[in-house]
Amino acid sequence: MKFRTFAMFVGPSVFLMLLFIAAPLISVFIQSFQVTQPIVTTQEVETCTPGFLTQTCTTEIKTVPTLDENGKIVTETNWVGWGSYANVLGLDQMGTAISEGRWGDILQIDFWAALRFTLMFTVVTLPLVLGVGLAIALAVNNVSKALKGPIIFVSLLPFIITPVIGSLSIYWLFVGDGILTTTLERWLDRDLALFAQGWTIELLMYFYRVWHVAPFAFVIFYAGLQTVNQDTLESAIIDGASRFERLRFVVVPHLMPLIIFVTIIHLMDSYRVFEEIVGFRAQAHVQSLQWLTYDLLQPDDAGNRAISRASASAMLTMIGIVFLLILPLRRTWRDHKGTS
């Protein structure tokens, strides 16, 4: 294919990706060093209220935003260097925490708490997703053909459901008067408030994510199981391998590329954990990196968005992506060099 034809085929897609993915990234990078604020002037205002004999007058100093001729607030953009980063990272608080030797206090700062949760979320859910997915795939491989269709249908439901709605549906089961809370309360004979402290919310989030992603792992592993070499399995049996050994030394090595694929996809997706926090209304107790940026982007009571700090937090989130992608990219690069 000539370059010109190739460019014409790929052009629209590349244009869209440059305009809406690459350009915003550069823009975010620049924004993170700038702060845009309305220009304010301080004015001394004297307000007088009628009183007996004399007026009571008070003078106070007000900050008033400057308006231009159209009545719009004039804003100015200042270069603040690493200021927004320091703000997001909470360097001041960190400094005091370290100098006083209270290391636990670092986790009180939003960013570090979010980082801790995001990493832990990624690490805890990964083996669970792989294990549950493989177990379902093996079990489905066992049942008769007539049952496979309906089982795959039911299994796909948690995967296909809107993440916010999925987490809400679990939230409603465990909310104060939800059905599972009342059942658990009856068993344990004590009051439960699962959404009142961080660790129970976190457990429910792990549960939700495994519920949501395990079907994906299952479908992929199940497809892989169909191509396991039967001859190898038989020779393993002749060699006296037990069922577990066959799984460990024949099936799992065969599935290895798929396991790596699911791992990479899951790492990318769980690093972006966000919808659970909306669905569980967990922001007061647990936050994730992506939620932090989202929260800063939302207008506050005065209608201002903390764009600069959001950009800084977004750039910090990106650092993690680099670490996540190093391994798969190196592998693809090796494969590419091998083939060409």
Binding site: I21, P24, R305, I321
Partner: peptide, 16 residues
């Protein structure tokens, strides 16, 4: 592939 991994909030911070 790299773009696929980007958190969407990063991009939205660029658009807003």
């Amino acid at each position: 592939l790299i773009f696929r991994a980007l958190p969407h909030s990063v991009l939205v911070a660029g658009y807003l």
